[in-house]
C-alpha cells in the first residue's frame, strides 16, 4: 500500500505544480513570511534603536549600549538620514554641556520617553545594580507580537493544506478519474493517504520555511512538527469533505475558506478572553493548536502541555472525522 500512497502523492504533486491556484497556495505562506520580516518594522527586534555620533564620548555610547540597540554615525547628515528612515530611531547628540534628542516625529511615545529616561539615567550616573527591586521573570524571550503574527501564519498554512486537498479532489471529479483509480489495486485508504500526504507535507514544509524565514531557529522543532501534523488532520478532513461536495475549484476554495471562522474565533478567544473564560474555546482543535504553537514559539512550552494540546487536537479532529467518514467514503465510491 505504501508504494501506491507514494505514487498518488507524486502524481498529485506533479499536477499541483501545473495548477496555478495550487501553486499560489504553496508559495503564499513563504511570501507572507518574507513580508513579515521585511515590511513589519522591528518584528525581529523589541529593543529601542538609538543613533549616536562617533564624536560622542565612549562612556555615553557604552552606557546606552547596555539598554538599547546603538548605531554610530560619522556625521550629522548620515545620522539625520538614519532617523528619517521608516523604522523607529531616536538620535541623541551632544549639545553644549547637555544632549539633544532628535526624532522623526511619528515614533511611538514610548520611544521618545525611553530615550529621554535613558539619557537622564546616564546624566545622573544611575546603574542597574542600584535598583532595590527584586527580579522575577516569566522567561519570555521572544516578542509577543511577532509570535502572535507567526502563529497566525501557521494557522493560515493549516487552512491552506485543506484547500490544496479540496482543489485536488475537485480536479479528480472534473476529470472523472476517481472511478478509474477505484478499478486499480490501489485501495481507497491509499488514495486518501496519498492525497493527505500532498496537503500535509506541503503545509509542513511551509511551516518550517516560514519559521526559519521569521527567525525562529532555536525553537523545539519536534514540538512544532507534532502540533503542526495533528492540527492539519482537521484541515485535511475539511478539504476532503468540501472537495467532494464542490463542483469547481472556486466553490471548493470558498467552502474551505469557511474554516477561517473557527480558526479566527479560536485565535481571538485565546488572545482576548480572560483566563476564567478560556474554557469556552475548549471545543475548538484550532484553539489547542494555537495555544501549543504559542508556547513553543515563545520557548515556554513543556512536553506535558504540548502533549495535552496535541491530544485534544487529535481527539476533536477524530470526532469530526467519524462524523464525516460516511460522506467521504460515499464521495470516493
Amino acid at each position: 500500500m505504501l508504494k501506491n500512497v507514494f505514487k498518488i502523492f507524486s502524481r498529485d504533486l506533479k499536477i499541483a505544480r501545473r495548477d496555478s491556484m495550487a501553486l499560489v497556495i504553496m508559495i503564499m505562506p513563504v511570501l507572507l513570511a518574507v513580508g513579515l520580516v521585511f515590511f513589519v518594522p522591528g518584528l525581529n527586534d523589541t529593543t529601542v534603536n538609538i543613533a549616536l555620533l562617533d564624536s560622542d564620548t565612549s562612556e555615553h555610547v557604552a552606557y546606552l549600549d547596555q539598554f538599547a540597540k546603538i548605531e554610530v554615525f560619522g556625521g550629522e547628515n548620515e545620522l539625520m538620514d538614519r532617523v528619517a528612515k521608516r523604522d523607529d530611531v531616536a538620535a541623541i547628540i551632544p549639545d553644549g554641556n547637555g544632549y539633544e534628542i532628535i526624532l522623526q516625529g511619528n515614533e511611538p511615545e514610548m520611544v521618545e520617553n525611553y530615550a529621554k529616561a535613558l539619557n537622564a539615567l546616564y546624566e545622573i550616573g544611575a546603574t542597574k545594580e542600584e535598583t532595590t527591586a527584586a527580579m522575577y521573570s516569566f522567561g519570555h524571550t521572544v516578542s509577543p507580537v511577532k509570535t502572535m503574527l507567526v502563529n497566525m501564519l501557521i494557522s493560515m498554512i493549516i487552512m491552506l493544506s485543506g484547500m490544496l486537498i479540496a482543489i485536488s479532489i475537485v480536479g479528480e471529479k472534473s476529470d472523472n478519474t476517481i472511478n478509474a483509480v477505484n478499478v486499480t489495486p490501489a485501495s481507497q485508504t491509499a488514495f486518501v493517504l496519498g492525497k493527505s500526504m500532498m496537503g500535509g507535507l506541503i503545509a509542513l514544509l511551509s511551516i518550517i520555511a516560514s519559521l526559519i524565514i521569521t527567525g525562529y531557529y532555536d525553537i523545539n522543532w519536534f514540538m512544532i512538527i507534532l502540533v503542526g501534523l495533528s492540527s492539519m488532520l482537521l484541515s485535511l478532513i475539511v478539504g476532503f469533505v468540501q472537495g467532494l461536495a464542490s463542483d469547481d475549484v472556486i466553490e471548493a476554495a470558498a467552502n474551505v475558506k469557511m474554516i477561517i471562522i473557527p480558526i479566527a474565533g479560536s485565535i481571538a478567544g485565546y488572545e482576548l478572553l480572560a483566563d476564567k473564560w478560556q474554557w469556552t474555546m475548549y471545543w475548538s482543535p484550532f484553539y489547542w493548536a494555537y495555544k501549543a504553537n504559542m508556547l513553543v514559539l515563545s520557548k515556554t512550552a513543556d512536553w506535558p502541555t504540548v502533549l495535552l494540546c496535541t491530544g485534544m487536537v487529535l481527539v476533536l479532529s477524530l470526532a469530526v472525522y467519524f462524523f464525516s467518514r460516511p460522506k467521504i467514503r460515499e464521495g470516493l465510491s
Partner: peptide, 16 residues
Amino acid sequence: FNKIGVSFEQSNVYSK
C-alpha cells in the same frame, strides 16, 4: 484488479 481492465464510457484521464 490486477486481472481486470475497465474501459469507461465517459473518458476519465488527468487533464494536467
